[in-house]
Amino acid sequence: MRRRCILDRSHPLTLLIWYISMITITVIILDPIITLSSLIMGTIHIILVNGKPTPSFALRCVLFASAAALLNPLFSHHGVTVLFFLRGLPITLEALLFGAEMSAAACAALMWCASLSIFMTSDKITMLFGSVMPRLAVLLSLTLRFIPLIREKHRNILIAQRGLRSDSEEKRSIKFYAAVYSALVSQILEDSIEMSDSMRSRGIRLKGRSFYSDFRLRSCDVVMISLSIVMMSMIVFLRANGAADFSFYPTVSPVRFTGGSCVLYLAFIVIGIMCYF
């Protein structure tokens, strides 16, 4: 399934830059066209990568979005189109639409984050931050390794303890689980001492230590990174010069397809679909 886009074969740096540009544009530029295209691209992306979402997941998304959309008018009374008054304050159509826009943007961003968690595996994170923040990278890799390790150990100890005791009553007592967890904790502590000793003896704190990583910056990574950066800076430049300046207050402005705005929308779509080539 994942072979359908190049993200799983991409360099971690490519992933980082690509996801940063997708998510920041989706969240910061609150323009209906940007949000709608992000939402559509995100849905297609998730379906291609992860298969069809379950109905309950889709329902949860819709519920979250509509709740967020309906809450905004209660707190924001900006806007000229009054629907009705609550407690003396106007509930406006503009606030409702702005709430819908915001929740749609949040949903789109959540989709990209879901995709991020699929492709940005722990080894890629470690590789990215290893040379910049070596201690954090070591800590992160140790912690990420520890979680499955602890689960496995816990299972083994549980089996061993059950085998040791014949009385079925005792297997559910607090005393039994206390014994299991005490064994687990002491094993973990012992392991971490051993690990730190072994790492020190291998020279973890020596100067000039190099990092090994399996990832090579290939030509398609270079193309993707440079295209992302070019499109991103184009979007920032156009936005600063008044393109896609959609506003909800005091009245909802019409969507204007000026030259600058069209280029901005196109640049965003180019970033979004370039992972399929």
Partner: peptide, 11 residues
Amino acid sequence: ALNFELAEDHF
């Protein structure tokens, strides 16, 4: 309780 009013009533 929420003091619901239509625009005509409010003004």
